[in-house]
Amino acid sequence: MRILVVLAHPLEEGFAASVAETVRGTLTANGHTVDVLDLYREGFDPRLSRSERSRYFEPAYDPSEAEPFVSRLKQADGLVLVFPQWWFNFPAILKGFFDRVFAPGVAFESDPDGGRIRPRLGNIRLFWAFTTTGSPWWVVHLYMGNPVKRLLKRGIAAFCARGLDFRLVNLYDMDRIDEAKRKAHLARVARLTGRI
């Protein structure tokens, strides 16, 4: 498989970078082709431009302002996201990636009569996310209702592709765990991605 790994974290030495490298190394060792898109290091601009928004629902939307990121998504068979959850949501740069790259004609088609959205990412068969959060499990699930999983699975994945292998793997209490737990999580990431 050709897998696009999208990393959304501003610190090159951060734990998210270690997770992304574990994913990349494991997938590559298993014979997959891996394209790592580090949104910060590649200078991705998350802001939807005025011209992009004004043309967004035109019949032949032109996503060229978001190239080469659109092409990289279209070439992938699988998508793996690596990011921290901040305020129970995506980092702004990742939200901008969805806004600009998961565009009409790329990720979905709008019914011209204003009805249903039709998925266009038939090439994507695998949609996984590895995230961290400073909150404990019970806050994310019981108090907040796991908003990131809902947005990814019911919103983005379901509206853009059919029959996906979807998985979200969280590391909770990130701000309070020790090095042993971080290493154990990286081993879990390697074990899971090794099954792809």
Rank of each mutant, 00 (worst) to 15 (best):
V80S: 11
L79F: 09
R120S: 09
G14P: 03
G114T: 08
L121I: 07
L192F: 03
F69V: 02
E67N: 05
K149V: 10
G25K: 09
S110P: 03
D178F: 03
L37T: 15
E52A: 09
T131E: 08
R72K: 15
D38L: 04
A129M: 12
S110K: 13
L192Y: 04
V106N: 00
R53A: 15
I196N: 01
P112K: 09
S110Q: 14
V80H: 11
R188Q: 15
V23D: 08
R47S: 11
G43F: 06
D77A: 06
A107Q: 00
V34Y: 06
V19T: 14
W138A: 10
V139D: 07
Y143D: 02
V19L: 07
A8V: 05
Y172L: 07
P112S: 12
E52P: 08
G163K: 08
N30T: 15
E12Y: 04
K95G: 05
P104F: 03
E65G: 06
M174S: 11
M144I: 04
R191L: 11
E21D: 14
L186T: 05
P46D: 02
L4K: 01
R53V: 07
L11A: 13
V140P: 00
R118I: 14
I3D: 02
W87F: 12
R2F: 00
N30P: 00
L79E: 07
V82A: 07
N89K: 07
D62Y: 06
S64I: 01
P119M: 08
L39A: 04
V140G: 03
W138L: 11
R55W: 02
G155W: 11
L192P: 03
Y40M: 05
A29H: 04
F57I: 04
Y143P: 00
G155H: 07
V19N: 10
L94Y: 03
D165Y: 04
W128N: 08
H141W: 11
W137M: 12
R150P: 00
E21L: 13
L79R: 07
S64P: 00
V19D: 09
V139A: 13
L168Y: 02
S49P: 13
D173C: 07
C160H: 07
W128D: 08
T28Y: 00
F88T: 02
A29T: 10
G115M: 08
V139S: 06
A161I: 07
V36M: 14
V101M: 00
D38T: 06
G194M: 12
L121S: 07
H141C: 05
H185K: 01
F90K: 01
V23M: 11
T33W: 02
A8E: 06
P112H: 11
A92V: 06
